[in-house]
Nucleic acid binder design. Structure first.
Length: 427
RNA sequence: GGAAGGGUGGCAGAGCGGCUGAAUGCACCGGUCUUGAAAACCGGCGAAGGUAACACUUCCGUGGGUUCAAAUCCCACCCCUUCCGCCA
């Protein structure tokens, strides 16, 4: 959520930062276009009400004094009736105006950080660096490798649940589990994260705190008969662990890693990546979440990104780091780096991690604040990133480790997690 | 699902119609004392809006009601805890 104070103070700057996102973010009729007026109306009604309330409080106190001294207060009593009615009326209007204003605020995306490069589509994202040596020979798609080895069963997934579901068997199932353990161990033991385990179902308030609601309800699975949703990422429950809390400055930064399943309806991506397990309705992910002071948001983003990269390096998977341009940064984020992994069958890099700083946007929404040294409480900055998406990592391992004899060579770091096996072969 | 209890400041926890934005303790900040630290003592210390700064307003789970006046009384809802039942 944008800062109400800043909205009044730096309206033009904020509008410029929002406009860079393109689309109709600041267009006529957009929540942004109405927000200044809604704010003014809301404040005007509140001021009117407050003045009247101040008067009411004065008279009320006087009545108490007069009565306790046995004096007559009938004049004051008569005035109070009218005043109370008026206050009630003004309050109702003020509340309505406030609700309308708050609603609009929730629909406005995070103004971009000034360091985000301009751009009109994902084609304008900026490659920052590459790591590893991408193989250029012909490699079958992971669904072919998996089928050949008998470890990926897409038909079974479709029968059980529908398209975009996959059944993993044998070595693939074990690899899925091994990757989860491997990544969690790395972040908890080497990178200093505290591991948490959280619910995969959350309520509406929680989903609103991180920005998935109200705008993106169609992307979520909602539970029948309840105002609850399956999480699309661990970001939601882990960040909201601190909702409506005031944290002491010395408790920051807070760094959590978590494993959760993730559920996405993929409503807007019909037809994309229909084959294989790149785009699933359910997938596993390890997530990294930081809560930190505003000044540290960007340096922490570098640290977080490095932690995610460390996983790819340990797994010897070639990747590149891309900075998202203005048009591609998500609703709640102020700045984002994507990690993209090399998929030899597609001869291209595909997203495997998205590391973002949200500035104080989520902290403000979720009511997560901290008390700076000697100062007033203010919203924390939040960051998060995948460290990593398990399914896509598995895909990358199958393709990058594929051998001409049909077997798959596993990264050395994973061998202990695979019961000592260094390769997956048929049978 | 049934029964009972409870939701108050960073935390714990009093208050149960006006003098309460709220006792007390802990935590925190400043001071005295001390070679230093601890202890002890003294003082300060909720949040949001608003203001140049004051003033002022709001907030005791949420919403509604009673009243001149509500954290305090009434109603509805939500959540939590405990016990019972059922079940992984």
């Amino acid at each position: 959520m944008i800062d109400r104070q800043a909205l009044r103070r730096d309206f033009d700057a904020m509008q410029a930062a929002l406009a860079r996102r393109g689309g109709d973010v600041v267009a006529a009729g957009s929540p942004w276009a109405q927000v200044a007026e809604l704010d003014a109306r809301q404040r005007d009604l509140k001021t009117q009400s407050e003045n009247l309330q101040a008067e009411r409080n004065r008279v009320s106190k006087l009545i108490g004094q007069k009565k306790s001294q046995g004096e007559d207060a009938s004049d004051e009593l008569a005035a109070m009736g009218e005043m109370s009615r008026k206050v009630k009326e003004l309050d109702a209007q003020a509340r309505e105006a406030e609700a309308e204003f708050a609603e609009a605020l929730l629909e406005i995306p995070n103004p971009l950080h000034e360091s985000v490069p301009d751009g009109e589509s994902e084609d304008d994202n900026v490659e920052l660096r590459r790591w590893g040596d991408p193989r250029q020979d012909d490699v079958p798609a992971h669904w072919e490798i998996g089928a050949e080895l008998g470890i990926l069963d897409f038909e079974a997934g479709a029968v059980l649940a529908g398209s975009r579901f996959t059944v993993l068997k044998g070595a693939a199932a074990r690899l899925e589990r091994g990757l989860m353990q491997f990544m969690l161990d790395m972040h908890a033991d080497k990178h200093g994260y505290e591991e948490v385990w959280v619910p995969a179902i959350v309520n509406r308030k929680t989903m609103t705190g991180t920005g998935q609601l109200p705008k993106f309800e169609e992307d979520l699975y909602r539970l029948e008969g309840e105002d609850a949703f399956l999480i699309p990422t661990a970001e939601v429950p882990v960040t909201n662990l601190y909702q409506d809390k005031i944290l002491e400055a010395e408790s920051l930064p807070i760094r959590h890693c978590a494993y959760t399943p993730c559920f996405r309806r993929e409503a807007g991506s019909a037809g994309r990546d229909m084959r294989g397990m790149i785009r699933q309705h359910q997938f596993d992910k390890i997530e990294l979440v930081h809560l930190t002071a505003v000044e540290r948001a960007l340096s922490d983003l570098d640290a977080l990104t490095a932690h995610a990269e460390a996983v790819l390096r340990a797994l010897e998977l070639p990747y590149r780091v891309v900075e998202l341009c203005a048009a591609d940064v998500g609703f709640s984020a102020q700045k984002t780096y994507d990690l993209e992994i090399w998929l030899p069958s597609q001869r291209t890099y595909r997203e495997i991690s998205s590391c973002s700083s949200f500035g104080q946007f989520q902290g403000r929404r979720a009511g997560i604040r901290y008390r700076p040294e000697g100062g007033k409480p203010q919203p924390v900055a939040t960051l998060n990133g995948s460290g990593l998406a398990i399914g896509r990592t598995l895909v990358a391992i199958l393709e990058n480790g594929w051998q001409a004899d049909g077997s798959v060579k596993l990264p050395a770091a994973l061998v202990p997690y695979m019961g000592g096996c260094s390769a997956i072969s048929k049978g």
